[in-house]
Amino acid sequence: MTFNEQELVKGCKQRNRIAQKQLYDVFGGKLFAICLRYTKNRADAEDVLQDAFIKIYENIDSYRGDSPLEYWLRSVVVNTALNHLRQQKYVKELDDIDYHLNGIADREFTLANFQLQQLLELVRELPQGCQTIFNLYAIEGYQHNEIAQKLGISEGTSKSQYARARALLQLKLNKETRFDDGSVRNKQL
């Protein structure tokens, strides 16, 4: 879709409904995928998306154009999702589990054979804490100290939760792969 980002932002700042709708049309899909990653079910994801767009429209004036618009939108959505989880008190239940990255050498690791829906489902099946930290670290690219600060947990907890998420995903992927193409991959775990 072709659109002029500046015009769009300008329109949104003037609370122009057409511009707001266009912003939603352009970015709604990607942002909804983020919501789906951070929540456990579709209804929650829809709630987060709604709240996030309201925040976006209300706070569009604080967007100064110093970073690409999409990054700003994504950060609002991630923050809204975290807020949502915080309200549901999932994050508080995070414990420091004794998981470490134990040299998982997956040189031929690839997700190319998987459908997006499958992968989303795998992420959503993770325990809530693992899911959140996996998203923040692996997909959004935060560092563990930033995640720790964001979620009010220790850096160690973030690391161990991430290691656990990784191990669980690896395990599930191995299962799914066997199931799909009948071949058994080298089990590293």
Binding site: R17, K21, Y24, G28, G29, K30, F32, A33, L36, R37, E46, L49, Q50, F53, I54, Y57, L101, I104, A105, D106, R107, F109, T110, L111, F114, L116, L119, L120, V123, Y137, A138, I139, E140, G141, R166, L169
Partner: peptide
């Protein structure tokens, strides 16, 4: 190897898009 794992996931998910149901925009509006 680590990078590969995250790289793959990021590639698969960070640009993912899913059409939200129509009712969402109505509610936002």
């Amino acid at each position: 190897g680590i990078n590969n794992f995250e790289e793959q996931w990021r590639k698969a998910l960070s640009e993912a898009s899913e059409t939200p149901p129509k009712s969402i925009w109505e509610n936002i509006e």
